[in-house]
Write a protein that binds this DNA or RNA. Structure first.
Lengths: 376, 376
DNA sequence: ACCTAGCGTGAAAGCGCTCTCTCGGAAGGG
DNA sequence: CCCTTCCGAGAGAGCGCTTTCACGCTAGGT
């Protein structure tokens, strides 16, 4: 079959060729940047009509095991009052039939969604790109393994999320990257949905949260700079509407007590934000010799600016970051936190809350530690 | 209430204090690094027994609107054969009752999960930390908005995922970061589950995929290096068991035809991998003057090594990356791809497949473009 | 020996929807 | 004017589970 090539530059053509060469399927497609929808050159015959091999149901398991549906259900859910004989029979039947319980039916009958939401309370999805978040997600996942609970990912565009979450689609929610006095937390909490915040919420009343000890970490970082003999120590703080931003700034202030504390610039946890903060700091105080950046991701931007202005790190300016999330040139001295543990803790707490466990810790603060590398 | 402090250093105590100061709740907890489980100091009285305000069902909506359940269902699903009068009545009732359809019931009755899985086929979860993946996820999300379809995130530990996915919990799957000849794709496909791969799969037969034009991108990048007059151009390739690794390497080879093409080292798409690849390259050919790195994230590691060895970039060694995903010092010349579009395309394709649309493009190749910055 | 516990089990009633069937009535063709 | 369509609408049968509830049966107490 000779494919019809519709326009395209020489490079595209090469790309096209490589597909032909590398792809085993005998059909392909050329993508043109102008169109939002792909052009079909030759469609494969993929109309394999979903053979739906009718999955076995609980009654089939029951029949095979020689017990009733009820008993199967009990075994599946680890309920008591089941004889070992029955339990084993069911187990065998389940394996033999490769039975998987139907999630929807189970949710419907059991009045629980068997799912929790991970809500990224930021329309831009900035957090997603943050290595910190990736680690948290891994932790969440790790903790979820074993609990037959799905992880539903949501990005909050204000409004739509609230009703979805309180609509009974999930049993609980993990809310991260909460800004300012976002009413989301209160909304969920008032609706009786178990919620745990990742990072101390500025508003939200008695909602439990898990957070890193940002305050102490910032103190350590700043003290390190001081112990190095730095004289003019600036800081690039996080957003003023997030606890993580405020706490790290507080730590810096505390450690700097007795010194000059006006060299503060705010960033938004992006490299660009870090870069412009650094620029403004340098303009205000060209002779600064150290900077505590409230996030490695911002430090990246700061380092670019420093480099562009020909200032050496740590020679001219010592830099300490926070998060231990990204490799940089030179390698950053930074405050490390165990992000995966953060995620696990978050999830553990939420699941416990959902189970209705008593005497749960209202909130958890995870320790941080300074990692000294090259940049300071 | 006077909290009991169980051990802890002065710093912890400060952290503890800041919680007391900043937190409105009158209870808190001290976290000790030794324990895997938090110590409860004073538990809040959060036993607000989930007031389950009995959500309205479809029959209540029907009653209020003065129609039957069937009609409400038709309106909700945009089915034809509904009078405008009835449609409006239902719409009003829905709003008045703040009705949200029950996801589980709908799935059960409708024989569809109303959910798709995003499968990260990598136990380590390495991809999660990749900015590339974050962008894809944003795209997936954007495309999903409007379709009442949930996004379920899964990290594949071989074995467990397959049965889950084919177990009818999701209507389709997006599989990314597939290594080598992973049987997952074939497994899913053979079970009739709609699947779309993110990145060309090495195995998997006729499974549709979306990929960036890695081959062409790599050619452009390498040609840029050549046009700069570089003489000894090396490459740090991606894993040899992933198409994205192979294709970028092929592109480099193609552009290098007629030149020396033995300066190849492999990395694993991590900064550490990039660093050790760079080290080995430098050992083998101390006089190399350019390197095409198959991923920005690896370039970061390479830059660290170059810096540590006192080689300037781009003065001594020109560096070109791929992905345009991370800021570096100096800013990387790199091959940019529209990751969000990648995610949207992936999702669009999967949803179309699920809907059973005809004449779908078997695969899609998205264009890339060179972004020239400082590093080359 | 009788009564009470309480364990192991099965029958059956839903959970809140979708979807097939059915049916009256309006529109259109002969 | 009658018969065929077809549209709008309702009744009702499940979807595959969980969960009372009721039942027989074995132990232990008196």
């Amino acid at each position: 079959p000779v494919p019809v090539v519709l326009g395209g530059t020489a490079l595209w053509f090469l790309g096209f060729l490589v597909v032909l060469l590398l792809d085993r399927s005998n059909s392909t497609l050329l993508w043109t940047p102008e169109d939002e929808c792909p052009l079909v050159l030759r469609s494969g015959t993929q109309q394999r009509h979903r053979v739906m091999t009718r999955r076995p149901g609980i009654d089939e398991v029951a029949r095979l095991a020689g017990v009733s549906k009820s008993t199967v259900s009990r075994v599946l859910n680890g309920a008591p009052h089941v004889s070992t004989r029955a339990r084993e029979a069911v187990r065998r039947a389940v394996i033999q039939l490769d039975y998987t319980p139907n999630h929807a039916a189970r949710s419907l009958a059991g009045h629980r969604a068997n799912a929790i939401a991970l809500v990224v309370s930021e329309p831009s999805g900035r957090v997603l790109a943050d290595p910190f978040f990736a680690g948290v997600m891994r932790g969440v996942h790790a903790e979820l393994a074993g609990h037959r609970t799905q992880l539903v990912l949501m990005m909050a565009q204000p409004g739509d999320v609230g009703s979805y979450l309180t609509g009974g689609h999930v049993d609980g929610a993990l809310v991260v990257s909460l800004h300012g006095h976002d009413p989301l937390l209160t909304l969920l909490h008032d609706n009786g949905l178990p919620v745990v915040a990742g990072g101390r919420p500025l508003a939200g009343g008695p909602v439990p949260y898990v957070d890193s000890d940002n305050f102490t970490g910032a103190i350590e970082a700043t003290q390190h700079l001081i112990s190095l003999g730095c004289q003019r120590i600036a800081t690039i703080a996080g957003p003023a509407d997030m606890a993580v931003g405020l706490d790290r700034l507080s730590g810096w202030r505390r450690a700097m007590s007795g010194r000059r504390t006006d060299l503060v610039a705010y960033g938004d946890f992006t490299p660009e934000g870090g870069a412009s903060a650094m620029t403004s700091l340098l303009t205000r105080e060209p002779s600064l010799d150290a900077v505590f950046v409230a996030a490695d991701i911002m430090a990246l931007g700061a380092l670019q600016v420093l480099h562009a202005q020909g200032r050496s790190v740590p020679g001219d300016v010592a830099v300490v970051g926070f998060d231990d999330s990204v490799p940089a040139v030179p390698p950053l001295t930074t405050v490390k936190q165990d992000v995966e543990r953060f995620g696990r803790m978050l999830t553990w707490r939420l699941l416990a809350e959902i189970e209705g466990e008593e005497g749960l810790p209202p909130s958890v603060l995870l320790p941080t530690s300074l990692v000294v590398r090259t940049s300071a």
